[in-house]
Amino acid sequence: MEGIEGERSNKGEGNSSRYSLQPLRINNEDILLCIDIDPQSMVEMKAATAPNGRPFTRLDAIKQAIILFVNAKLTINPQHRFAFATLSNSVSWLRKEFSSEVESTIAAMRALSATTASSQPDLTNLFRLAAHEAKKSRMQGRILRVILFYCRSTVRPQHQWPVNQKLFTLDVMYLHDKPGPDNCPQEVYDTLVEALEHVTEYEGYILESGQGLARVVFRHMLILLSHPQQRCVQEFIDIPKSLAKKAPQVEPMATEDIVPVSSQ
């Protein structure tokens, strides 16, 4: 975006002063999507079934949301790129090379499956990996963003990361169960918020849902389409708008003036 210059005149003083708008460049994004493959990612969603008739799980919803997200981001800007990783106890690459091809995303989602068991996850390797990729992105005039999908209601993640090292933006999508004797989603959420604030460069968003509805996941992904360099703080978000039904307004019937008709 080019800078804008102009003149501002002070007629009373007979002089003029210069004003300018500093150039602002919105960088293309490299987006690393990291998906939690803990067994809790296989919790069934409500009111939804997969095409083959089997139950529709959190992982299924995440896969569809990612494909929709990538298609939408590339429609906005075909220069964005995407890579994929999984989170079990630690982080592993699912598709390391950043790509702008939708087919690459679809192939990664087909290869994605849940693990049979996992313990407390460590996000340190995710942050270390992201910092390494962020430096490579910056050398190309790009910025890196990480979107973490977390599905555990019983286990809080841990990490060790320097406070003053913020090289990438972190977003979190948290899908969880309702609170219960074995679940502590509020504690997990608070831990994720602390991690986000600890590492994120630009404004990072954390979005959560315990409703078990796929449409909520898709709606949250619409918010994550926003570019980190153009975001408001999360507290000011008022999108997407709710489609509240409004009672139709009844307009008064138009009345015509009665004109007397002469019999003569």
Score class of each variant (00 low, 15 high):
residue 56 F to H: 07
residue 57 T to M: 01
residue 57 T to R: 09
residue 60 D to C: 15
residue 64 Q to R: 10
residue 67 I to E: 15
residue 67 I to D: 15
residue 68 L to G: 12
residue 68 L to T: 02
residue 68 L to Y: 04
residue 70 V to K: 11
residue 71 N to M: 12
residue 72 A to P: 07
residue 72 A to M: 05
residue 76 I to H: 13
residue 77 N to M: 13
residue 78 P to F: 07
residue 78 P to I: 00
residue 79 Q to S: 13
residue 79 Q to A: 07
residue 80 H to A: 00
residue 80 H to C: 01
residue 81 R to M: 09
residue 82 F to W: 05
residue 82 F to S: 03
residue 83 A to T: 02
residue 83 A to L: 06
residue 84 F to H: 12
residue 85 A to G: 11
residue 85 A to W: 02
residue 86 T to Y: 01
residue 86 T to I: 02
residue 87 L to R: 10
residue 87 L to N: 02
residue 90 S to V: 10
residue 90 S to R: 13
residue 91 V to K: 00
residue 92 S to K: 14
residue 92 S to Q: 04
residue 93 W to H: 08
residue 94 L to W: 00
residue 99 S to P: 01
residue 103 E to H: 02
residue 104 S to L: 07
residue 106 I to S: 11
residue 107 A to Y: 05
residue 108 A to H: 10
residue 108 A to R: 10
residue 110 R to A: 14
residue 111 A to W: 09
residue 111 A to H: 08
residue 112 L to D: 03
residue 113 S to F: 12
residue 114 A to D: 03
residue 114 A to V: 03
residue 114 A to E: 04
residue 114 A to Q: 00
residue 114 A to C: 07
residue 115 T to S: 15
residue 115 T to F: 10
residue 116 T to M: 14
residue 119 S to W: 00
residue 120 Q to F: 13
residue 120 Q to H: 07
residue 120 Q to E: 15
residue 120 Q to P: 11
residue 122 D to F: 00
residue 122 D to I: 02
residue 124 T to M: 07
residue 125 N to E: 09
residue 126 L to I: 13
residue 126 L to Q: 05
residue 128 R to Q: 09
residue 129 L to T: 13
residue 129 L to E: 03
residue 131 A to L: 05
residue 131 A to I: 07
residue 131 A to K: 04
residue 134 A to N: 04
residue 135 K to S: 10
residue 136 K to P: 01
residue 136 K to D: 05
residue 137 S to K: 06
residue 138 R to M: 11
residue 138 R to K: 06
residue 139 M to N: 08
residue 139 M to A: 14
residue 141 G to Q: 15
residue 142 R to C: 00
residue 144 L to F: 06
residue 144 L to P: 00
residue 146 V to W: 01
residue 146 V to P: 07
residue 147 I to H: 06
residue 148 L to M: 10
residue 148 L to W: 04
residue 150 Y to H: 06
residue 151 C to S: 08
residue 151 C to I: 05
residue 152 R to C: 11
residue 152 R to Y: 03
residue 152 R to K: 06
residue 153 S to G: 11
residue 154 T to Y: 06
residue 155 V to Y: 01
residue 156 R to E: 14
residue 156 R to L: 09
residue 158 Q to R: 12
residue 159 H to L: 14
residue 159 H to A: 15
residue 162 P to Y: 11
residue 162 P to F: 15
residue 163 V to G: 04
residue 163 V to D: 12
residue 165 Q to P: 04
residue 166 K to E: 08
residue 167 L to A: 13
